[in-house]
Amino acid sequence: MEQSPQIGDRITEKSGPPDENTVRDWMGPKRFVQWAELRNWIETYYPAVFAPDWLYGGKKRGWSLRYKKSKAFCTLLPEYRQFSVLVVLGRAERDKFEERRYGWRSQLVKLYDEATTYPDGKWLTAAISSAADRRDVTELLTMKRPPPPRS
């Protein structure tokens, strides 16, 4: 007997990357709106910079959508009835974060303080359930890599 998905479970069907309908059904319509808004923001502010790439992390981690050029920008994690974004902050980005520590929302600072620091950086996973959460992530991403000048 197959177990029903639990909140936060990942899409683990390994036959191929999920399509938009699968992602929408898995996350639910409210979270999918946040997903689509963040993807649109990346396309608008970083046109033709990133080619999103679906990665399969195995049965435990499932599918994720990575934005990367030479360095990772962010990874979108479609989860059951949730949506999270992973941002890895290297030394320079952590210094920038600390300079602005009191300008960030308290929820983001708490997340930052609790995130594990690995040799390649601090791995911050932020759940996105509102426009304010999404704004935190877009500000973090803008700090990490300023958008190219618009023509």
Rank of each mutant, 00 (worst) to 15 (best):
E99C: 09
T22M: 05
S84G: 10
S4L: 14
K122W: 09
T117M: 14
K122H: 02
K110D: 14
K71F: 04
A131W: 03
W35A: 00
P5W: 04
F32G: 05
T75Y: 05
K59T: 11
W123S: 03
M143S: 10
P78Q: 11
D9T: 10
A48F: 07
P78T: 11
A132C: 08
Y118Q: 12
W104A: 02
S130A: 04
D25A: 14
K122Q: 09
D113W: 02
K69H: 11
C74R: 04
Y45K: 11
Y102S: 15
F73P: 02
V49C: 12
K71D: 13
D53R: 13
M143L: 15
I11D: 06
R150G: 13
T138I: 07
K69W: 09
K144S: 14
V49R: 11
S70V: 03
K71A: 12
K68Q: 10
D133W: 04
V137D: 10
L76V: 03
T138Y: 02
S129V: 01
R81C: 05
Q34N: 14
G90D: 15
P78N: 09
Y112R: 05
E114P: 02
V85E: 04
E43C: 01
Y46V: 02
K59V: 07
D120L: 10
E139K: 09
Q34M: 10
L65H: 08
K14Q: 13
L108G: 06
P147F: 10
R135C: 03
S84W: 01
A131L: 12
G103D: 13
A51P: 01
R105E: 14
C74Y: 00
Y112D: 03
R81W: 03
I11A: 00
P29W: 06
V109G: 08
A127W: 02
V23D: 10
P148E: 09
Y112V: 00
V85N: 12
T125A: 13
R10H: 11
D19W: 04
K144N: 06
Y118I: 00
S129Q: 07
E79Y: 02
K69I: 00
P146A: 15
S4N: 07
F32D: 11
S15F: 00
A132P: 02
Y118E: 12
E98G: 03
S106L: 08
S84K: 14
W54E: 05
L89Y: 12
T138R: 06
P149M: 04
S84Y: 00
D133M: 08
L89C: 10
K71L: 13
D25N: 14
K71M: 06
F50C: 04
G62S: 15
V85G: 08
K68T: 11
T22H: 01
A72P: 00
R145C: 13
L55V: 08
E37C: 02
Q82E: 10
S4C: 02
R105D: 15
